[in-house]
Computed example of a mutant assay.
Amino acid sequence: MGQDLTKASKATLQEQMQFAKLASTATILPEEYRNKPADVLVAVNYGASMGLSFADSLYRINVIKGKPSMSAELIASQVRIAGHQLLPKKEDLQRQSVTVTIIRCDMPDYPFTATRDRAWAQNMGLLGKDNYKKQLMTMLYWRALTAVAREACPEALYGAYTPDELQDIPDDVHAHVVADAEPVDGAASVEPSPSKEDCRRIAELMEQGGVSDAESARVAFHALTGRDITSTSELTMVEAEQLLSGPELVVSRTRQALGARHE
């Protein structure tokens, strides 16, 4: 059974449960997993879907606020394993700004770029956090990396957030709905949602790109997020943050998507 447990997919559910129960008592296990066999079980199976070993899963995947999260280092690794180029960060120490670029292996002529700077961190209310006080440039690098990876190759992230993204989300976040928008059953409104103002700004950008009705909105949202939604009320907070970090790109990609629909 020991050899079989190197990959969760090769073990029976009973074997996995036995392993999770035993592993959760280990003192060398990350503290968030100790005496939490259910979280251990979720993490190792989540990691197995990405080809990770048990050890990698338990040390590089955390469960925060009930959600599995990937470390920024793991996201960088997954991007490269998928065959995409992750270019070195470009720092501007004077502006305290970091830019990260990803070039997809199937879209080499269309680089994806994300920038995070002190002004962004201040607007997000992050500058008061210890990590940002002690290592601002490092935190900006990780946030730029995860932002561009979420846009360029979301399939490599398996829908996961990073621990700092989840910790930045308040516990009392409520869903916000833009004017006359009705949530869809099973939509992303169960996730932390963007503010009403952010929804309004995104809607304006999409209108600039040519969105005029529910169908054109669905086409545009699919191009922007990869999901079949029709309202900004169905966006997650992270998706909204990503869209607002590149307003020109939102307009141009919306135009491209709507233009392709009529070709």
Results as ranks from 00 to 15, higher is better:
residue 122 Q to L: 14
residue 107 M to S: 12
residue 114 A to S: 14
residue 160 A to I: 04
residue 139 M to R: 10
residue 63 V to L: 13
residue 102 I to A: 06
residue 146 T to L: 07
residue 111 P to W: 05
residue 160 A to W: 00
residue 157 L to I: 04
residue 61 I to Q: 05
residue 72 A to E: 10
residue 156 A to P: 05
residue 142 W to C: 05
residue 69 S to Y: 00
residue 141 Y to G: 03
residue 78 Q to T: 05
residue 133 K to Q: 15
residue 75 I to H: 01
residue 122 Q to A: 13
residue 110 Y to C: 15
residue 157 L to Q: 02
residue 140 L to T: 04
residue 88 P to W: 09
residue 110 Y to Q: 15
residue 90 K to F: 06
residue 76 A to P: 01
residue 133 K to W: 05
residue 112 F to Y: 15
residue 116 R to F: 01
residue 162 T to L: 07
residue 119 A to P: 02
residue 131 N to F: 09
residue 173 V to F: 13
residue 118 R to Y: 14
residue 62 N to E: 15
residue 106 D to T: 06
residue 77 S to M: 10
residue 130 D to M: 12
residue 144 A to M: 08
residue 151 E to I: 09
residue 171 D to R: 04
residue 121 A to E: 07
residue 165 E to G: 10
residue 58 L to G: 03
residue 92 D to E: 02
residue 163 P to D: 11
residue 84 H to R: 06
residue 116 R to Y: 00
residue 70 M to G: 04
residue 115 T to E: 13
residue 112 F to Q: 08
residue 93 L to F: 14
residue 120 W to T: 05
residue 148 V to A: 02
residue 79 V to W: 01
residue 71 S to V: 01
residue 145 L to T: 04
residue 130 D to V: 11
residue 112 F to H: 14
residue 104 R to C: 12
residue 112 F to A: 07
residue 145 L to Y: 00
residue 112 F to L: 08
residue 166 L to M: 13
residue 143 R to A: 09
residue 133 K to I: 12
residue 167 Q to C: 06
residue 103 I to K: 15
residue 120 W to K: 07
residue 67 K to A: 12
residue 173 V to I: 15
residue 87 L to V: 04
residue 121 A to N: 04
residue 103 I to Q: 14
residue 171 D to Y: 04
residue 132 Y to I: 03
residue 58 L to W: 01
residue 80 R to P: 03
residue 73 E to R: 09
residue 121 A to L: 12
residue 111 P to M: 07
residue 171 D to M: 09
residue 98 V to P: 02
residue 127 L to H: 00
residue 107 M to Y: 03
residue 68 P to W: 02
residue 82 A to F: 03
residue 63 V to M: 14
residue 136 L to W: 06
residue 111 P to V: 04
residue 56 D to H: 09
residue 90 K to H: 08
residue 158 Y to I: 10
residue 95 R to D: 12
residue 149 A to M: 08
residue 81 I to G: 00
residue 167 Q to S: 10
residue 153 C to H: 03
